[in-house]
Simulated assay, not measured.
Amino acid sequence: MEGGSVGSAPAPPPLHPAIAPLSYLLGRWRGQGEGGFPTINSFAYGEELIFSHSGKPVIAYSQKTWKLASGEPMHAESGYWRPKPDGSIEVVIAQSTGLAEVQKGTYDAENRIVTLQSELVGNASKVKEITRVFKVVNGELSYVVQMATVITSLQPHLKALLKKV
């Protein structure tokens, strides 16, 4: 068999120049987070994020969470991140709840920060706005998600700290 033994993974595609500034995100991240909101009880969760690419100018994103005590699945979402050479970024995310987000924002490759603001939150009866800020500091990925609903202004909702595995 040409190109390696049976069962070996194909070589990863070359990195597209458009996603090179965010290549530090690529891979699998795992850790824990905590959530809350004025209208719900606070909760803790385990999480895995995966950022991958196919050689195209886009990063595939997938996320899943679970209850820490039982391992029972909680939330999942997936989507695509499209960084632009001018430092802007477009992100689309579909959540397991049926909610869809179209977000725009900026990235700072030097400081490893991505800031996103919802342009559209679709199929959501109560959620009106979502912001997300991702940072990598000392090799750890952290994020903060804020949310606004029909009865609340923008409030902290989720935060997590993940390590690359």
Rank of each mutant, 00 (worst) to 15 (best):
G3S: 15
G4W: 01
V6K: 14
V6T: 14
G7V: 03
S8M: 15
S8Y: 15
P10W: 04
A11G: 12
A11C: 12
P12E: 01
P13F: 11
P13G: 04
P14I: 09
L15S: 09
P17Y: 01
A18D: 08
I19Q: 06
A20D: 06
P21L: 04
P21V: 04
L25K: 02
G27F: 01
R28K: 12
R28Q: 11
R30W: 07
G33A: 02
G33R: 05
E34F: 14
E34P: 11
G36V: 00
P38R: 04
N41A: 13
S42A: 11
F43P: 00
A44F: 15
E47R: 03
E48S: 06
I50V: 10
F51K: 00
S52P: 02
S54V: 08
K56H: 05
V58R: 07
V58G: 04
I59D: 06
Y61S: 01
Q63M: 09
K64E: 11
K67I: 03
A69K: 03
S70A: 02
G71N: 11
E72A: 09
P73F: 05
M74E: 02
S78G: 12
W81E: 09
W81Y: 13
W81V: 11
W81P: 05
R82S: 11
P83M: 03
K84G: 05
K84L: 07
P85N: 11
D86N: 01
V91S: 08
V91T: 11
A94H: 02
A94D: 06
S96A: 15
S96V: 15
G98R: 00
A100R: 15
A100F: 15
E101A: 14
E101G: 13
V102I: 08
K104L: 12
K104M: 12
G105Q: 00
T106G: 00
Y107K: 02
D108M: 04
A109F: 01
A109Y: 00
N111F: 14
R112K: 05
I113V: 14
V114K: 10
Q117V: 05
S118P: 01
E119N: 10
E119S: 12
E119G: 09
G122T: 04
G122P: 10
S125Y: 14
K126E: 14
V127H: 12
V127K: 13
K128Y: 13
E129K: 14
I130F: 07
T131S: 12
R132T: 03
V133G: 08
V133W: 13
F134L: 14
K135Q: 07
V136S: 07
V136I: 13
V137I: 13
E140F: 10
E140V: 08
L141I: 07
L141E: 02
S142W: 10
S142T: 12
Y143Q: 06
Y143L: 09
Y143D: 08
V144S: 09
V144M: 08
V145T: 10
V145F: 06
V145Q: 11
M147D: 06
T149G: 04
T149H: 08
V150Y: 13
T152E: 02
Q155H: 11
H157E: 06
L158P: 10
K159M: 06
A160N: 05
L161T: 15
L161G: 13
V165F: 09
